[in-house]
Design a protein around this nucleic acid. Sequence first.
DNA 1: CGGCTGATTGATCCCGGTCAAATGAGGTGG
DNA 2: CCACCTCATTTGACCGGGATCAATCAGCCG
Lengths: 246, 246
Amino acid sequence: MLSKDDSGSEQPVIRRLGALRRLSEAGAAAIKDAVRERIVKAAAGEDLVCEGDRCENVRVFLSGWAYRYKTLEDGRRQIVSFILPGDTCDAYIYLLSAMDYSIATLTPVSYAELDRGAFERLMSADISVAEAVHCETLAERAIRCEWAINLGRRDALERVAHIICELFERLRVVGLVNGNSFAFPVTQMDLADAAGLSTVHLNRTLQELRSAGLITLRDRSLTILDLQALSSTAMFNPNYLHLHRG
Amino acid sequence: MLSKDDSGSEQPVIRRLGALRRLSEAGAAAIKDAVRERIVKAAAGEDLVCEGDRCENVRVFLSGWAYRYKTLEDGRRQIVSFILPGDTCDAYIYLLSAMDYSIATLTPVSYAELDRGAFERLMSADISVAEAVHCETLAERAIRCEWAINLGRRDALERVAHIICELFERLRVVGLVNGNSFAFPVTQMDLADAAGLSTVHLNRTLQELRSAGLITLRDRSLTILDLQALSSTAMFNPNYLHLHRG
DNA sequence: CGGCTGATTGATCCCGGTCAAATGAGGTGG
DNA sequence: CCACCTCATTTGACCGGGATCAATCAGCCG
């Protein structure tokens, strides 16, 4: 059941997993099939899952941006990671009894929903697929690890620069950048919650990045004016993304 | 090849995995066998792996404390997680080409080293084992997620209290607490690097916890005097540890 | 005894938080 | 077309948590 809009919508998944590990042709085909089965769409600004919900399906994101977050009782919120097209949202998650974080959308999104059966069928269909999925799990953990040092040890400017560098690399892999520009559907409030800063200070930090000639950010579009300089102020080292086939 | 000292050394692994998911008897036996094959020991204060090293073996920790960390070029360091007895250090890690973090020991440790063959044999030996290992991967990610909100959104007092609560729960599962006390082989420097604080401020924060009657910490031994109060100042909710069979 | 590592204390400074208000950009209903 | 509302961004003023610098103290080991 493939509508015209969806044709090719599985491309980001193939690109993402293929960057982590070489996919066999059979593997790529198995992914395409699995990901066409049950496609769900959601609007911007919606919660897809909430902390405490039962875990049932593995989600494979096809288009749009989302993020994982946690909140404290008193409302403080931390965005824990961004979810981009091609990302798989929690292999084997159905083994747990309750979600330990929430997912919200930043833009309209579409994703494939795989129940336990569908996911396990995909994992056993082809070794290269299983390996790529395991790699993605490891890569996603590595991202959270890098976020820990980001939040714990980088100052505001370095932190925001780092988040931008990471998003740029991840979007590049799935073909969502245009030169050094990309759509950036993140409000300053959201970005502040990802960087562990207040919105006020985040705003000032962005201005600092702008006036240093590192980025442009207008109308939800971000341009990196000097990637070299941005990377080095962030002390960004892309190895942790594991995007070059191990 | 089991020396007298090692008899029963696999217990923490069984307890840890068994807390995450019910293990069949065959599964428990398979774990015990796998974990006895090749046991490695290391002294306190050693690096077991460094960022950038090749990834070869999966490690299953049997005794002692270690931690994962990352450093920035200028020496700033962030401890990203503590590794306790029973923890598995990175299922499928051999699929990646280079480690994205380092591991160092806090005490003498012993761990089982599983090469790719041994690990895959274990995973296919018994479904309950494979599921438990996947659960552990998910639980470990959840821990990093919680650490993100810890570093990004909790203040110093809450942060340190949270780390203590988490360690207490994790040690309890593997039987390493004695009432509300446990061995705590972490220097203030290390704890500061886990909490994203300076050692000076960490020291003052510990004093605050002590003078509030929440903990005692002397001679590498920590006692929680008021678990209720400590949990609530930390806003600690143990669900993310997934220790109650899903 | 001297040297080393880790814990503690004091004094000072500054990054980033908080509070408050203004500006701007859509969006909607009259 | 305008009045009005909401949401996001921006700016200013002030404050405080935690960093930094520097010294002292306490064990421990050779």
